[in-house]
Design a protein around this nucleic acid. Structure first.
Lengths: 218, 218, 218, 218
DNA sequence: GATGAATGAGTATTCATTCAT
DNA sequence: GATGAATGAATACTCATTCAT
């Protein structure tokens, strides 16, 4: 599941530690200036050691980018997997969306980095990253499918797939279109608006549409 | 509305011609290798003149990126402005969405370039670009607002804003998440699926909602 | 006959000039410190221009080495080709050897460079260099063959080949074993000694051996 | 006679063992890639221990080169000293040459390494190496001198010196001009050709010279 | 005595930009 | 207005050597 990044150092524990230092340093720099404008020396410095040491733990500058992206995805995925995916109620779906959007809000900067720099990954690293995206989208698919199964919403498989992708991207939108949203809404408001729009077209089976407090503009 | 890009040459006509050459050459290169990996020499060559001449029409490499992005936006905007925005029927809205999505399909590569490289624009160029995005989103807002006005759909101003943004991004998604969509759907299918999902939550006024199998173009 | 070394600059005349500057500078440096210990920056400086300019006329550091070796060979070959190869007398052969050895004496430093650094040439450059060596050995073969034809010496083809190589290497020996020879002999003495040893085994047909003043120990 | 190479370790026995490991590993590497392109890490690895340990037995990378060269010389010298130098017949001389040339054939790769890399030795190591070369040349001088003494050949001291050097270099030629010789001749043929050429000019006392087809082992 | 992680000076090469012709 | 040779700061990456464990 992980693309191996070769290190010259043997001590696995140390590799773990040093790579975390590298990632921590690099993320900060990438946020500021982007991958291309960040120097390997700057990365080494930010990580707290010499350029020589940096290269004991990576092979190329691009390895750092991969490490960073991989790490961000892992972070998001890990947190995401704390969501309760098994229930099949609309309310749980909404909670999940809210949870995910809040996460995107917290990890805004990281999401932005990943979003903007991932394209600089070498061809052979991309599949690993897309794989992770897929897994996250899958979680929303499962959620949606459960709701369908329990009869709370009405979507066929294709619609589930597209909706899951929409939700996933709308979460990211909060980060990458911050200039359009964050001056107008709080994350709470954004969540409410998006959730409402998504759920409307979904739950309205039998016209019973009653989506709680949010959006009573019926 | 345009950020001026200084040229040493006076003849405005010539500037126009040369810049178009530059843009044409650069877009191709940026598609292939991205902005950072493209050299000014390559740009000059692709444009059909010498590096010296290139610098008669731009000030820095980044100017080229701006020119390219600006040009792509203009292209999209121009085509988009051919849409009929004034009617207020659901059917017109759907046509507009289809039109826009088709455009995104055609200009896929360009959209990708803009999407991936815009972040390399200098701070002072970004507002100009965002401005253009805003204008495009605005068109969808107008469309939606008209539908609301004519009573075909039911959305408040905030929902209109978010929906317009969603539509805008979903169009781009077709390009920037091609790996997720284009192996599964044709652009037609994608349009149908997304349109349906968007309109559902919108048009369901008076419970007339009947979303049989996909696309109930009601 | 020449391995092309790509330049970014188009003006052929200028390339010629600049490359000569490069060669002149590089030879001096290579003599002093060898190829590996010489920096591209030092080469540029010695050539009289910036590192950037250096790279307008070569592609890699190794190109410089090739240029240098090629140039030395050309120099030697050119001078060598002034020798009169057509006669078929022992005396002419001796003159040719003397001429060649004197050349090796003059170009000592260059020969040394070539000798010691040629092995650092990339695999694809070596054939070009060996080719040139071959051509020089060939000249001695022609000389010897003419002497055989005119009946002055007695050697079969294999012996001609080996003798030509021996002469060639003995000339170089004066440079690369200078520590063994140059404290004991002048170049004149060295020539006399070597010539004598080579010719002895060769010309003594019919016992008529008469090799002038040198070595009357017959 | 040996230039000392300082070690941090005291145990002389161990030093001997480790250095042999170093030499064995390094020779292989130097054969493959030359001294400059071989890293100390690779040497340590090839020797079978860590980089830290390597530096317990040498002071600098160049020490390894010296160790290697010294070792090769020693190997050659040792084998060479098995030759019978004391007789004074042409036949013994020829045997000695044959023996030496065969040795050069066997140790081809080593000879090449020494030949090509010796120039990278530091100024202060060179005398030690040249000293060894001298000793080997001396052996041929002794051989030749004995033959002169016994009246089998006719050479003065200068001629002896030059001839001994010629023989020495011709042996090496088999290795360093392999591209010129080894596709044309077997080592046997090469020996026969060179021996004949060398001895001709030497043994021709009393005109008894009869050099039919090659190898008149008279 | 052995190890291997850390170091950082050093190096080849690139490329945006300038400016004399 | 066009050209392209010249520039040199910048940069990824290497590798001999050290030293704490």
């Amino acid at each position: 599941m992980k693309r191996p990044v070769k290190a010259s150092v043997k001590d696995e524990k140390l590799i773990e530690i040093r790579r975390n230092q590298i990632i921590r340093g690099a993320v900060t720099l990438f946020k500021e200036k982007g991958f291309h404008r960040t120097t390997t020396r700057e990365i080494a410095k930010a990580a707290g050691f010499s350029i020589g040491t940096l290269y004991e733990y990576i092979r190329t500058k691009e390895d750092v980018l991969y490490l960073v992206c991989d790490n961000i995805y892992d972070g998001v995925k890990e947190k995401l997997s704390e969501m309760d995916v098994n229930g099949g109620t609309i309310s749980q779906l909404k909670q999940a969306i809210a949870y995910y959007f809040h996460l995107m809000d917290e990890l805004q900067e990281e999401v932005l980095v990943m979003y903007q720099e991932a394209k600089s990954l070498s061809k052979d690293a991309i599949p690993y990253v897309l794989q992770k995206e897929m897994e996250m989208v899958d979680m929303f698919q499962v959620l949606l499918r459960n709701c369908v199964r329990s009869g709370e919403i009405e979507l066929d498989e294709q619609q589930i797939y597209v909706t899951a992708n929409d939700i996933f991207v709308q979460g990211q939108m909060w980060a990458f279109r911050r200039w359009a949203f964050q001056r107008r809404y709080t994350i709470e408001e954004y969540i409410e608006l998006q959730t409402e729009l998504v759920c409307h077209g979904i739950e309205c089976k039998r016209g019973k549409v009653k989506h709680g407090n949010l959006s009573t503009k019926a």
